[in-house]
Design a protein around this nucleic acid. Sequence first.
DNA 1: CTGCATGCAAACCTTTTGCAAGACT
DNA 2: AGTCTTGCAAAAGGTTTGCATGCAG
Lengths: 146, 146
Amino acid sequence: MNKGQGSLIEALQARGMRVTPQRAIIFGAIEKLEGHITAEEIFEQVQQVNPYVSLATVYRTLELLLELNLINQTNFGRSQAYFALKDHGPHHHLVCSECGYIEEFSDTIFNPVRTELEEQYGFQAHTDHLSIFGICKGCREKLAGG
Amino acid sequence: MNKGQGSLIEALQARGMRVTPQRAIIFGAIEKLEGHITAEEIFEQVQQVNPYVSLATVYRTLELLLELNLINQTNFGRSQAYFALKDHGPHHHLVCSECGYIEEFSDTIFNPVRTELEEQYGFQAHTDHLSIFGICKGCREKLAGG
DNA sequence: CTGCATGCAAACCTTTTGCAAGACT
DNA sequence: AGTCTTGCAAAAGGTTTGCATGCAG
């Protein structure tokens, strides 16, 4: 599923979109940071490669990637948006309310829920990228212990 | 479970917090609007009672209610925050990506998911207020038909 | 009376946008 | 060459904050 380095460039080219240096740098940053990252984080990473790329361009590029369905956007209950490459299957996140730790888990766990919603409400759920809050293993042990 | 009118005032008094006229008006607005409402909506409703209450106070009061765990905050994938009284049991929302329609469903549907997360990840999930996106019944029919 | 709450306005943070200049195909 | 993209800076939208004043307890 993972398309490796340069996948975003190829994806863009395949759709006949322009691959500008800025976009290439931004793609590189996203691929390097790999995970759920904010526009600001991408921007900082981009700055290290070329300080003349603007934040506006980062946002515009993210918008483009969203339109092309190459990344997805979430906000883990926080004020900024988090972005991630869509290169490793549908999944969701456990977000620890104590320490902020984020762990992935597979979408398959939601299969029964999806079925239920379909049957009960006629609702076709796109369980794309949920964030479930709670207490992670580590924090539970810490809290229990002391 | 529903504590009826005035419940917020009582809850505040019980905790020894001040009940100012502004807070009373804001509480009234929240109880009247009953549902998932934005700070702005609360503000507008409050204005109809007393136009001298400020938006800042609305926000400060909402913050207070959050701290006291009397309301919860969600953002249905949108930029503003939505608030709701915590007076009718744990539940979640189906948000239609087509028409914006929002429907509630009970938390019990997540029981298997919670168990699974506990067993697999040691994660204690607080499935408080999830928003699941998808296509609602009405829109599915419309899309299928036309 | 005292400290917490308020109003106002300005600050803040994240994201979006208008416009002229520049670069990709 | 023509169109799409960029940078800059300003605007926008939602939320928070500093400070002097006012009111609840």
